[in-house]
Amino acid sequence: MRLPEFSFHEPLTLDQAFATIKKNNGNARFLAGGTDLVPLMKFGLETPSMIVSLKKIEGLKGIAEDNGYAMIGALTTLREIISSTVISGKLPALSEAAMAVAAPPVWNVATLGGNIRQQTRCVYYNQSRAWRLEKEPCFKAGGNVCHAVPRGKKCFSVYCGDIAPALIALDAAATISGMAGPAEVRLIDLFSNDGLSPFTLEKNTIITGIKIPVPGAASRSGYAKLRVRSAIDYPLVSAAASVALDKDSIITGVKLALSAVGPAPVAIDLNGVLVGVRIDTADFTALKDVLPKKTQIADNLALPGSYRRKMLSVIAKKAIMKAAERAAEKETI
């Protein structure tokens, strides 16, 4: 499949980048690794006339530990995240989530910011022009139907990012640069929960960096992902968890976030469930009660929604167990 024609700009500063975007009246798009945008352009689902590459802008890359926080530039590649011992040692869910993305060649180009800001997906949306001759375009492709949910009145496309749930469970915040100047936004607040337009950010803003509080030794994290194959696949359901234990392996705090459950990742309020019990005697049946009853899971990924709903608690438990075992053993991955 061919890319449509577009012009290409490689600014050296953020100011230049925003100026170019502004000049193009909303018909320009920022490019980071391109692993989400380029396939969408090949399908004719994104049709920018101008691509503004962020690659030559200094200061958007790198991993540093500073004052109790891990600071990661948005243009840092997944490979760099996976290779970082700070991240694998203290923020293992992030490392694990990055490794769960696609396949190793993709890690070399895909970026942290780009992964967070990937478009929502649906088997009925991520299709070519030839497909749209066979079936009416859906809501997200500019039409008026939903093929995934018969008589559905809105878009049920799914946010399939692996990294965002890990960052949410790790309490991360994103630094945003845009027309209105820099700002810091909690990760979860980046998402609108609307399949048509999944982000709360204005189109012409960029994430410049991610800031994660580095947990103490008694708190560790984990990521679990349900997929058909060992590589390539987007999650069918995934979960990230941070678990803090006291010296007797009693759980003192759990943070849990889910992905591939609807148009946005979901932070779960555990409402005290699992807290105060020893990890090896924890009863996970109560987990089912605190997980969302009403998700927007539909039949629009590789496996049916009914199955994915059943797997929520299973995958959540796997993520919590991974985190807890690491917290107990102070293990790194």
Binding site: A103, V123, Y124, Q127, S128, W131, E134, K135, V228, R229, S230, A231, I232, D233, A302
Partner: peptide, 18 residues
Amino acid sequence: GCVINPSFLEYKMPCALD
């Protein structure tokens, strides 16, 4: 009559790691 998974992403052929 329409193929809805016309790609190696959605047609689940085992990959090297499998």
